[in-house]
Design a protein around this nucleic acid. Structure first.
Lengths: 339, 339
DNA sequence: AGAAGAAATGTAACCGCTTACATTTCTAAT
DNA sequence: ATTAGAAATGTAAGCGGTTACATTTCTTCT
């Protein structure tokens, strides 16, 4: 297929065509498009008319090659199926769009090896900058990105003293706050359903927050009944059933996220347990589901949208040569009916 | 900043470096990477070792410029916040990834003008192909894309006879099927909460499906009580309240999607109405929410994941020069407790 | 009017890769 | 051994922009 012609149409115009049409050099056309201020009013007008008339739009790859910037920003998230990531990503994308950048997406399925692969793919694809979730990954990856001058923003976590740019919140502190409240209410037999803590720093930090609260209250953190499973309502339900069938039934089940908590809630219903009278349940994230559930869920509200938006802003500023500081966003305990 | 050097590191290697290291020409290096079969076993090995040793990875923009393909596929969806799009997009992305393509994302916020702008942006960014939602848009856009040889797949709808490639389902038929069932159950006073039908062909077709069912059953489609609103639980609740406060209260409220239906369900609860005894409610999409709602929702199940995956497959095939046919996916009525 | 300096524009090298075409090397048949 | 044809490799011309540097055209001041 002849790539300069579409079926029966005329060739796609290039700078040279515009330059010829406007009677100027290609350099001037380029300047009109990229820094209109350095060009005279008159030529600008003439060139822009030619651009309009020919329906010219600059070839992206050529521009990227010559200027060494793609204006694309990559995001690597575990999965868009999780509403929290979808929401954060949407806000991220909107803010990027506002700044003339385009979003490249890859997903890791919560696997560190796949994430590393995606990081390489997206940087090879020319992403100018990257958004990543959490902080846990091989140090060599950070080296690789630094060597390539690809700025990174970490989200969904906060590492103010790591030297890495982040826009997120403190998972440990947030969960500890919730656990403090739980313990304050008199609960001592605590169960926890978490995502896998081995490969997921957010999950690990949250569990750690519970343990810290227990220590503070002179409860033995060793008594925490922890079940790790993967993200789904069904798994939450199964884990809940398992917890409640153990020797020492917990009085409260703290879940690593709302989806697992909804599963626990379903589990309680099918075991005929009243919530919170027989067993209290808490979540994390405050997704839409949390408020619509049979019992409105007590959970931790995370400002996902704001996080995505700020992450974009911070990256764009970095690309513009500034050095914006990391941001730690506040979270809020939402006490509803399950505790 | 010196782009060939990172802070203190060595320059990023190019084909020329690899060629020199392996003692071959740049053409041979390129061939090793792109069509290893035409190169001799021995040189291939030598070149790949050099690639490995130098940590070479081809410059994306240069490759795109020279070969006129970016291996990026764009998707323009209303918003990722809607779980159905997030889910479909995730499947789309996974399948693209499997075929060595990367996903570019833009969002239109359900606005046709923004969508058009995004289409232009993504094609200017070099997207090799595009996924779009629905079929309603200016004919000139299809011309534009055809002129640029950018294949498109339409999803979330089915237009077998339009000449456009689509992987989707028939919204009208699906909703009619549900409405047939509703009418079969003896309901005649029908209300409907829909997304805006003016700019959303899926919404329009679904409402049309209800009307068609009414006509078939000799009910006057003019009696359909329709409220249009935008996507959110709150709006669904408000619309429901409005419907029920009218002179002729509907016996059943059919909603354009599950989110609106959940809102209606909340509305019913706060009005003290029993579902389905006092008023029946139906949804559309079968998102997770539908099964967890206070009353499990009667709705239409749409195979979002499968749609996203097939859309990717069809686009990749098209890019590979094949001419895959459009696909119309079956939907399934999920009768649960709200009807 | 003439000169100095600023502003606008032009020239052409370069970005890193692919690929058409030319050349060399190998294979196998005469 | 020779040679035609196939296979492997090399040469170099783009791809379509950007931008450093050179040149021309304005201003403005003496």
């Amino acid at each position: 297929m002849d790539k300069t012609h579409s079926s029966g149409g005329r060739p796609v115009p290039t700078v040279a065509d515009v330059a010829a049409a406007a009677g100027v050099s290609t350099a001037t056309v380029s300047r009109c498009l990229n820094s209109p201020t350095v060009v005279s009013e008159k030529t600008l007008k003439r060139v822009m008319e030619a651009v309009e008339r020919l329906g010219y739009s600059p070839n992206f790859s050529a521009r990227a090659l010559a200027s060494n910037r793609t204006n694309m920003v990559g995001a690597i998230i575990p999965t868009m199926e999780n509403a929290i990531f979808a929401r954060g990503l949407q806000a991220f994308q909107e803010e990027l769009q506002r700044h003339g950048r385009t979003l490249l997406v890859a997903s890791s399925s919560y696997r560190l090896d796949l994430e590393e692969q995606q990081i390489k793919t997206l940087s090879a694809r020319g992403a100018d900058a990257l958004l990543l979730i959490g902080y846990q990954r091989d140090a060599r990856i950070y080296d690789y990105l630094e060597k390539r001058d690809i700025p990174v923003v970490l989200t969904w976590a906060s590492r103010p003293d790591s030297g890495l740019l982040s826009v997120g919140f403190d998972n440990r502190k947030a969960m500890k706050q919730l656990a403090d409240m739980v313990i304050q209410e008199g609960y001592t037999a605590i169960g926890c359903i978490s995502a896998e803590t081995g490969t997921n720093d957010r999950a690990r930090d949250r569990v750690e927050g519970i343990r810290a609260a227990m220590r503070d209250a002179h409860l033995d953190p060793g008594t925490l009944q922890l079940i790790e499973t993967t993200y789904s309502i069904e798994n939450g339900e199964a884990a809940f059933a398992q917890l409640m069938s153990g020797a020492a039934q917990p009085e409260v089940v703290m879940c690593g996220n709302d989806v697992l908590a909804i599963g626990a809630l379903k589990g309680a219903a099918s075991l005929g347990l009243r919530v919170p009278e027989d067993v209290a349940i808490t979540g994390f994230d405050d997704i839409e589901l949390a408020q619509v559930a049979p019992y409105p869920l007590t959970t931790v509200h995370v400002p996902h949208r704001r996080m995505g938006q700020l992450a974009a802003r911070v990256l764009v500023e970095t690309l513009d040569g500034l050095e914006p500081p990391s941001v730690e966003l506040p979270v809020e305990i939402c006490r509803r009916q399950t505790l």
